[in-house]
Amino acid sequence: MLGLIQNELLIIIGRWRSYIGFIGISILMPLILWGFSVGGEELHQDYAKELGGTFMVVGSIINSFLATYVIMNTLWIHIPFLVTLAAGDSVAADGANGIFRITLTRSVSRFKILVSKLLASYIYTATLLIFCAFWSLGIGSFVLGTGDLIVINNGILILDESQAWVRMAFSFSLAIFVMCMVATLCFMFSTMVSNAVGPIIGTMFLIIIGYMIIGIPLEIFEKIEPYVFVKYFNVWWDAFKDPIPWGEIGKKLGILGIYLVVCFGIATYVFLKKDIKS
């Protein structure tokens, strides 16, 4: 199994498309960090004004933690897109390129091949997010420094530096799980067609529709809202609440987990039954 995963990673590494995400992040992040270091004073003033009544602010509240917190807030449409670039190709490309005629005629089971492909796209997904964290937290700490994280979100939460690191790690772990769910959805589409574009468009379409449904305050939409998986994407946000709402997080992860398992189940069914005709 490890050998199979290694193979799939080799394929991902060999694909130019896999680097789009990393390149994109490497362009975006310095820009954002630069923005923070230049325009940080302004943000600091806004924050200080809001906090002024209750606290006395000493030093800057602009640091890599706050920057990361803000960045994570804004990238929720881009990251899924970058994730689908790898997951969409996963099964479809091998079909289209005729590779299945060589791999699926061997003694290794289709199920194992499918699982190794899925795990490889999870590894890709996790790497992409860790790369994000490397920029915003790692490089960010050099550029903006570290310190307490002050979050204003239905009240004020102040986390000292060591707590902030823990919460960041937790938040990124939750984000990786969310993105793995997105990858599984895209992966499912990938088993059904013979090109990568369909799965990417299909997944992004569902995510955007999902955001619309939870964004538009119509009663009919509110009824179906609980079934829209996008609604639970914000689980990473819960890592910055105090106390950490474990129950809430568990519920959200559970629902996303159900989606993930169902998508994987459908992918398995389709792939095991699939006639390789190309």
Binding site: L10, G14, R15, N97, G98, I99, R101, I102
Partner: peptide
């Protein structure tokens, strides 16, 4: 070997 032999071309 079924019909044309296809491989990962970039490898």
């Amino acid at each position: 070997l079924i019909e044309r032999a296809d491989f990962h071309k970039h490898l």
